[in-house]
Design a protein around this nucleic acid. Structure first.
Length: 463
RNA sequence: GGCGGGUUGGCGGAGAGGUUACGCACCGGAUUGCAAAUCCGUGAAGACCGGUUCGAUUCCGGUACCCGCCUCCA
């Protein structure tokens, strides 16, 4: 069996991945707060952990992996959106979840096994908060329930900080009722205009971090294998999750492997809502980029390094995918290449896997005599281990029938061969090239293939 | 201020203490009416300064620059 190795943020080293239970490998990834379209930065962890999900299923079996990713549907940003639009909160979150699914589906991401909504786990959160209070890790004050960071000596272990260090440079506005400036909210009161639930501490709503602890516990148990998310969640979100879960369930251990993906950047700066330098996945899809191209670009940099979106990279990705799709047309997937799987198993070395894919492609094209049916099947299955070349990935312009144009070009060419006047041929050829069609003319005849930048609209004018 | 990460050829981007990463682009050749595509082939790197070593882009230390977190954030 392939040994998966993962860089664990807690140890800051690559470790052999040993699941608690190979028959039920469990992964939790922090999902979106559903108040708006997902931007490209939001898509990176989705795609990265989708590859890990596929790899885990490949190694342990499809029915032996549980992947949970939450929807945060209770949050002040959602409340603000409701207030400014006058819309019902549930209709906002439902609509946003629909968008999220559509956009992430377009990127070829498999739906997680579980997609819990925070609002459906309020009771679990209340139970967990109560337990934390009982165990002396949380306290109620001024209608709030706060986590007492001083009660958990390991606080800061994941992010490599001490409570004292953090206080020194803290930019947080410290609420006067906090015992320690780093204490964070588990429960806060809601006035009648805000969504709220009855609790032992009055009508209120949960703080941000408790939902992931509660849902991970409910769905995956007190101890599970992998917890993932963007690097910006490492502190404070994941640190707080660890504090909550480890204090509520001492000795269970919570998540054993912590994975963090680096950020998507725009001109050297993190893509984020607060900087306003973001664009949505939907924007790119509407510009005509196939979701698979977006996926390819996101995967072409290792997940622990920053990456960015550029038109040049997208064009390169599109050209490569067109080539690969043409190569395996009509092939049926067999099993993925072992070397490629090994590369992915090495902390998701997608670049290494891509290099292997290039080598496999070269081996196929170097043997044009054979149809390489088996090799193509391996190639296809290998690509699909990364979620590429899946059937039905939307976004590729449906290829119209180019045969009539090919015939016309062929006839013009035959005439030109006789008359030595190639102007009409060149004119049609130039028009085809302008429409993104690759024109291949040889002694064998004329072949037209949609290429990078293919534009069916421009083709219409030629008819 | 505290903590963490990065700097590879024209561009993107990996692994490995010594042997071609890979892809794109470029250049040369085959091919073509000209091209395109394809095939073959040649170049091109490791921010800077020290150290360890027979040998470092790879390990260690320092410098410079960049980025992230410490505030909602993937």
């Amino acid at each position: 069996m392939v040994t998966i190795r993962l860089h664990n943020s807690i140890s800051r080293t690559k470790e052999d991945f040993v699941p608690l239970d190979p028959a039920n490998v469990r992964m939790y990834v922090c999902g979106p707060t559903v108040y708006d379209r997902a931007h490209l930065g939001n898509a990176r962890p989705v795609v990265v952990f989708d590859v890990l999900f596929r790899l885990l299923r490949h190694v342990y079996g499809e029915s032996h992996v549980t992947y949970a990713r939450n929807f945060t549907d209770v949050d002040d940003k959602i409340n603000a959106r409701a207030a400014e639009t006058g819309r019902d909160i549930r209709s906002i979150t439902d609509e946003t979840i629909g968008w999220y699914h559509a956009d992430m589906d377009a990127l070829g991401a498999l739906r997680p096994t579980q997609e819990p909504r925070a609002t459906e786990f309020i009771n679990a959160m209340i139970a967990m908060i109560s337990a934390l209070i009982d165990k002396g890790h949380a306290y109620e004050v001024a209608g709030h329930v706060l986590f007492d960071v001083r009660s958990y000596p390991a606080y800061g272990r994941l992010s490599g900080r001490s409570v004292d260090d953090m206080i020194a440079g803290a930019r947080v506005e410290v609420a006067p009722y906090k015992r320690d400036p780093m204490d964070f909210v588990l429960w806060k009161p809601s006035d009648p205009s805000l969504p709220g639930w009855e609790s032992p501490w009055g009508r209120g709503r949960p703080g941000w971090h408790i939902e992931c602890s509660a849902m991970a516990y409910e769905l995956l148990g007190a101890a599970f294998d992998i917890h993932g998310g963007g690097l910006d969640l490492q502190f404070p979100h994941h640190e707080n999750e660890i504090a909550q879960s480890c204090c509520a369930f001492p000795d269970a251990g919570f998540a054993r492997y912590w994975l963090h993906n680096e950020m998507v950047q725009v001109e050297g700066k993190k893509m984020s809502k607060s900087l306003g330098n973001f664009f949505t996945v939907r924007d790119l899809l509407e510009q005509g980029w196939p979701g698979e191209v977006i996926r390819f670009v996101l995967l072409s940099t290792h997940y622990r390094k920053p990456t960015d979106w550029t038109e040049e990279r997208a064009r390169e990705a599109e050209a490569m995918l067109r080539q690969w799709r043409a190569l395996v047309e009509g092939a049926e997937p067999t099993g993925p290449d072992a070397e490629l799987a090994e590369a992915l198993a090495d902390d998701l070395n997608v670049a290494g896997a891509m290099a292997r894919l290039h080598a496999l492609a070269k081996a196929i094209t170097a043997n044009p005599q054979k149809d390489c049916f088996y090799e193509k099947g391996v190639f296809l299955a290998s690509a699909r281990l990364m979620g590429l070349l899946e059937p039905g990935m939307g976004g590729w312009t449906a290829a119209p029938d180019l045969a009539p144009l090919a015939t016309r070009l062929s006839e013009l060419r035959a005439t030109a061969m006789a008359t030595k006047d190639f102007a009409p041929v060149d004119a049609l050829k130039a028009a085809l090239v302008a429409a993104g069609v690759e024109v291949r003319m040889s002694k064998a005849g004329v072949e037209l293939v949609p290429a990078q930048g293919f534009d069916a609209g421009k083709l219409e004018a030629l008819k």
